[in-house]
Write a protein that binds this DNA or RNA. Sequence first.
DNA 1: CAATTTACTGACTTGCTGGTCAGTAACATC
DNA 2: GATGTTACTGACCAGCAAGTCAGTAAATTG
Lengths: 212, 212
Amino acid sequence: MTKVAKRRDCPPAQRRRKEARPAEIVAAGISEFEEHGFHRANLSRIARKAGISKGTIYLYFASKEALFLAAIEEHITSVMGESEAEVLSVEGTTRDLLTNLLKNMYARFVHGEAQALFRILLTEGDRMPDVISEYHAMTIQRGSTLLKKILARGVERGEVKSGPVLKTPHVIIAPAVYFAVHAMMFKSSQPLDFEQYFEAHVDVMFHGVLAD
Amino acid sequence: MTKVAKRRDCPPAQRRRKEARPAEIVAAGISEFEEHGFHRANLSRIARKAGISKGTIYLYFASKEALFLAAIEEHITSVMGESEAEVLSVEGTTRDLLTNLLKNMYARFVHGEAQALFRILLTEGDRMPDVISEYHAMTIQRGSTLLKKILARGVERGEVKSGPVLKTPHVIIAPAVYFAVHAMMFKSSQPLDFEQYFEAHVDVMFHGVLAD
DNA sequence: CAATTTACTGACTTGCTGGTCAGTAACATC
DNA sequence: GATGTTACTGACCAGCAAGTCAGTAAATTG
């Protein structure tokens, strides 16, 4: 009744690659967490995806949560790095700048990888205030600062009228987030038409719904 | 080594109340699911909240999932029942109607009970397409039909200009959903000022951001 | 009051998964 | 080739929670 260890010949004869492991594990982790969220994510499956055994994960990460944090950090920086300068560098009317910014947002949030990250944080964010803060800084904070700049510039050029939006520019990009949320919930059953939605978004943002 | 049953005196001497149980269990379930989502919700805790033992739950519901479905159904109908007629009955300008509708939405989605439900479905909805469909019908479907009516009436009265929004009225209420999502993620760390946000929302919805 | 029915209980079973560690083999050095 | 080091393996452990069911007692019946 001892803990007999019946060792079989190590099947695919794993090579030893200390340097490559962490990144590979994180990559497998991102994929697994995207697909299943934190709770349902399964370490054995992550190990399989990374082509190693479960025990190896624990050589590089202290716990499931530690791996999750590493994966989130990696994902945030890889997905969110750039775009600000790009948007601001365009010389053009406020219309152009805003349209450009929105296209950028939709591309990331709706079609892109940012959606999965967004979903995970929405779902599992409670337990990790640090990550939430970082995410906030890199998305909302950054985005609304950028928007404020664009709007202020627009006011100066006489293209934008002043109003409460200047202080709470979130409302401008809100429909993009709504679209992402709608897609998350109803993608398969009741999809929205993107082109049509985008057109409506831009139109309302610029002119509102009232006549005159 | 038999399965000895050491029966203690039945502690609080539970009464037998076959009729009242299901509703009580569902109520306890709603509270638990709101607080923890589906996965972390714990049946023993639900039983405790309902003042019964775990086994009793299984006298009335086949599984955790069945209880969850019952809870969701109950919640949807209790939270979403009304408001439509109320909003439409108001005789006034389109401004009034829309402002009224929005206040209603914020009250439900942002401050009210609908938020927890929304969060759960966003998080756990994949596994239950039926519930998602029902939810869609009772919220999005209904809401956008209502909005289309209001806008069409506004166009007739010359208060609303025609445009792509008439076909995709979602963009109008999107900022309310954004606010709810923002609250879910950043409530504790970076809350938005509601009054200010609401004002900006209404302003943009009516007039847009561009001058003239 | 005894006999019967049935709402209810909670210890137990079962299954799953995060985490451990004795054992193995790939590489390094002599 | 022998010896040492260490990346790696995977059977096992521990604990938790969904679900079960033998047993109990509240109501009901005769």
